[in-house]
């Protein structure tokens, strides 16, 4: 979806650098994420995609560059402060709390909410029912399949009403039926104005969901554009698509 003229991007990243030892994981990344869009970040393993998300939500502090969300700098803020600003996150390997119930897992991001606990609980039950997991509300988080755990992470972003949601490989190892539910949820959230940054190796999903595709290689952006542009780009073919 093209950015309307004069509209500030929701997330503005400029000259981002992050190193581990002598290896530059991010080497001068600059990227604007427009509101109510899906931006896919693709690239070979080790190209810096997850490090990029980790810098946005405060797990890593970049050495250089700026990250601005709704005009507020994110660099140096703690992950919980960034979450409160409205940035949600899912992980490459789902990080569901294994020893607490599924419903408490969904409610975890709204512990400080001013809404009534009963209302939030009802909302969580409805969300679980919608993705076909209503019967599992009282089960432990550790009893869920990998795909179900990933859906729980997405439901957390739903209930937290995060405006920007960072999805790290949400479709990896997920059953096709669950993947269809993921598509449905992402599209529904999109309709309510949410913005996504999607990391995925699942190119069908990337093409189906994203407005723009950004290709990372060795910590740099080597290409960006629509599906056809990416497929035709020689650098992308050499580095990733083969």
């Amino acid at each position: 979806m093209p950015e309307p003229m004069g509209m500030e991007p929701l997330l503005k990243i400029k000259d981002l650098e992050k190193s581990f030892g002598g290896v530059k994981a991010l080497d001068g990344i600059s990227l604007d994420i427009p509101e109510n869009s899906v931006t896919a970040v693709i690239g070979p393993n080790g190209s810096g995609k997850t490090t990029f998300l980790n810098c946005i939500n405060g797990i890593y502090v970049p050495e250089k560059g700026s990250i601005t969300y709704r005009g507020k700098s994110l660099v140096g803020r703690k992950p919980h402060e960034i979450a409160v600003l409205g940035i949600g996150r899912t992980f490459q390997v789902a990080r569901v709390f294994k020893k607490i119930s599924v419903i408490d897992n969904v409610l975890a991001p709204v512990l400080r909410s001013k809404k009534s606990p009963a209302r939030l609980r009802e909302q969580a039950v409805q969300l679980l029912k919608r993705v076909g997991m209503g019967d599992l509300a009282q089960q432990g988080g550790g009893d869920l399949s990998g795909g179900q755990q990933k859906l729980i992470e997405l439901l957390r972003a739903w209930i937290a009403e995060s405006d920007l949601i960072l999805l790290d490989e949400p479709f990896a190892g997920v059953h096709p039926e669950l993947k269809a539910r993921f598509y449905g949820e992402i599209r529904e959230m999109r309709r309510t104005g949410k913005t996504f940054v999607l990391i995925s190796h699942d190119m069908k999903s990337v093409y189906a969901l994203s407005d723009e595709i950004v290709v990372f290689d060795l910590g740099k952006i080597i290409a960006r554009g629509k599906e056809e542009e990416i497929k035709a780009d020689k650098r992308v073919i050499d580095a990733y698509l083969g």
């Binding site: 939500n57 797990i59 703690k78 992950p79 919980h80 979450a83 409160v84 996150r89 992980f91 990080r95 709390f97 975890a108 991001p109 512990l111 400080r112 957390r156 937290a160």
Partner: peptide
């Protein structure tokens, strides 16, 4: 770490 990312 996951708790922190969720705003806790």
């Amino acid at each position: 770490a996951a708790a922190s990312v969720l705003g806790i």
